[in-house]
Amino acid sequence: MQQNQKLAKQLMKKSKTARYERFGHLLSLSALLLIMAIVLGIIIFIATKGLSTFFKDHISLKDFFGGVIWNPGTQTPSGQQAVGALPMIVGSFLVTILAAVVSTPFAIGTAVYMTEISPKRGAKILQPVTELLVGIPSVVYGFIGLSVVVPFVRHTFGGSGFGILSGTFVLFVMILPTIVSMTVDSLKAVPKYYRQASLALGATKWQTIWKVVLRAATPGILTAIVFGMARAFGEALAVQMVIGNAALMPHNLVSPASTLTSVLTAGMGNTVMGSLQNDALWSLALVLLVMSLFFNLLVHFIGRKGAFKK
């Protein structure tokens, strides 16, 4: 009887471990809150800054997204404000999409070799190479681009060598490791019994890879591509060094052009806070932010649709 009461008392008392647990819980919660506050703060800051171009400086959305002349503070020959961001938006999308288009087949080929054809050798090569490629700073990529890719493009395709094409080549190398390693992961996630079922039905190894493994891994591969595109879209320095930085509509792939990021990096030190020039740059930043949110949503969406049901 007495013992039971003692036990009951002990059960009601908060133990030391329970207190530790509470402490740890609070600690991680406050870290989370802090991070959320920072992220929210950044979004609000960029949004207010970026939107003041339209609300404070009364630039119309049409002039911003449809205009092709970028020289904030001055007027176009036809009398509008020269804040046309279309050339940069087009430039950003072009390099991003082209880089993804060039990278994807390489990435899938490499990933198939590494997982399906020679997994042992694949594992030995993949890890160090990806880590190395990811670890190289952007400026080095840009430097190599400037001294190798730009002259190569100039000799082969003419023009100055600066432009979308050089940007694409540099981004191709930069996003390849991301896409490869994520594609490898998604191929590895395809259960072995799908391959067995296919082979047991008389499929060859290639048919199995094409029609079962790659098909089952498609959502994962798409996610990998979107991640690569997000990286390409946001890359500033290396692109800035090879694209020519002329805020003009690209006429072809070897004419100097610019991207949202390259105009931002080039212009941000040269404007006065609160001026139209400055606000217009923030609007570009806002477009970048919205795009990266969009990429994130896309990844979530693909991930949810394509998760393997176990």
């Binding site: 259960p191 019994y193 799908y194 067995q196 079922a197 296919s198 047991a200 079962v212 098909r215 089952a216 393997f308 049901k309």
Partner: peptide
Amino acid sequence: FQQPNPFP
């Protein structure tokens, strides 16, 4: 096979 293994 032992486990049902239809393709997805």
